[in-house]
């Protein structure tokens, strides 16, 4: 395999993503990492739930399972345990993973099952037209939070860490190099690897939140991302992250015993 292009399912183009959507960037980063890993197209399985983000496997030319809303990790658990030699990657969205699929998320982390999970967190339900998700920041407008979101958000990367995943990192579609690297590290580490990729959704999120253009959304991610080390320093100084800002970096990297690891990988 020479190029990322070889992994795309060209007869499925054009894709359904809106102009300026961040999902394509995350798919590219993922396939770049897969290439660096030297994985075999016929041994790699992409699995997803339901949502814009979950449409990603359909554009990749491996065996793939586009499942039901929230259940991707449970399907993936079956695929992986029935055939641990498969390299399994899951694409999911913030709603898919943390709302309807929240229980499967914490249990897949707890089992520390050997797969790589990439969550495209666009802070919104994109596919259904922009309803609030568990990751919609305080004050943000969505069709179901017309006066501004009031509930606290889930910190997905921390949730993965606390639930037992061997690897957890968060980057954004702006931080292409860091994101690609994190995905690759996640793929290398046996056990459950979680990579949260903050992505822009100009259509369902940006439009209602004064971030109408793709550039303004990318700038938003650049300007609001705080490196973990810096956040720790701030915490030590008793300073809090202002609302809407989020940490990026590697939250955990460890080698606890994991499920679904083929012996010679250990």
């Amino acid at each position: 395999m020479k190029s990322v292009e070889d992994w795309y399912r060209h007869d499925r183009m054009p894709h359904i993503f809106c102009t300026g959507c961040g999902n394509g960037t995350v798919i590219n980063c993922t396939l770049e990492a897969v290439m660096q890993m030297g994985w075999d197209i016929d041994n790699t399985i992409f699995i997803s739930g339901i949502g814009c983000s979950s449409r990603s496997p359909g554009y990749i030319t491996t065996d793939s399972l586009h499942t039901t809303h929230g259940r991707a990790l449970a399907f993936a658990t079956g695929v992986k345990l029935a055939k641990p030699e498969f390299d399994v990657v899951v694409f999911t969205g913030d709603g898919d993973l943390s709302a309807i699929g929240g229980n499967h998320f914490i249990h897949a982390c707890r089992r520390n099952i050997n797969m790589t999970v990439i969550c495209m967190n666009n802070m919104i339900y994109g596919m259904t037209g922009g309803q609030g998700s568990p990751c919609t920041p305080a004050g943000a407008i969505s069709t179901t939070t017309p006066y501004g979101a009031t509930e606290p958000v889930f910190d997905l990367a921390r949730l993965a860490e606390a639930s037992g995943a061997n690897y957890s990192a968060r980057w954004t579609a702006y931080h292409v190099k860091e994101l690609t690297k994190a995905i690759k590290v996640g793929m290398e580490i046996p056990g459950f690897s979680f990579i949260e990729a903050m992505t822009q959704c100009p259509t369902s999120y940006g439009r209602r939140n004064k971030l109408r253009t793709t550039t303004s959304m990318l700038e938003y991610m650049r300007d609001n991302a705080v490196l973990l080390n810096k956040a720790k320093r701030m915490e030590a100084e008793g300073r809090e992250l202002s609302p809407g800002r989020f940490t990026v970096g590697e939250f955990v990297k460890r080698f606890r015993p994991a499920l679904g690891v083929v012996k010679d990988e250990e």
């Binding site: 699995i47 065996d63 399972l65 499942t67 039901t68 259940r71 449970a74 399907f75 993936a76 658990t77 079956g78 695929v79 992986k80 345990l81 029935a82 055939k83 498969f86 229980n103 499967h104 249990h107």
Partner: peptide
């Protein structure tokens, strides 16, 4: 999750 897992296993 049970039924999801067995569908996944069947494809494998």
């Amino acid at each position: 999750a049970s039924i999801s897992s067995i569908i996944g296993a069947s494809w494998a």
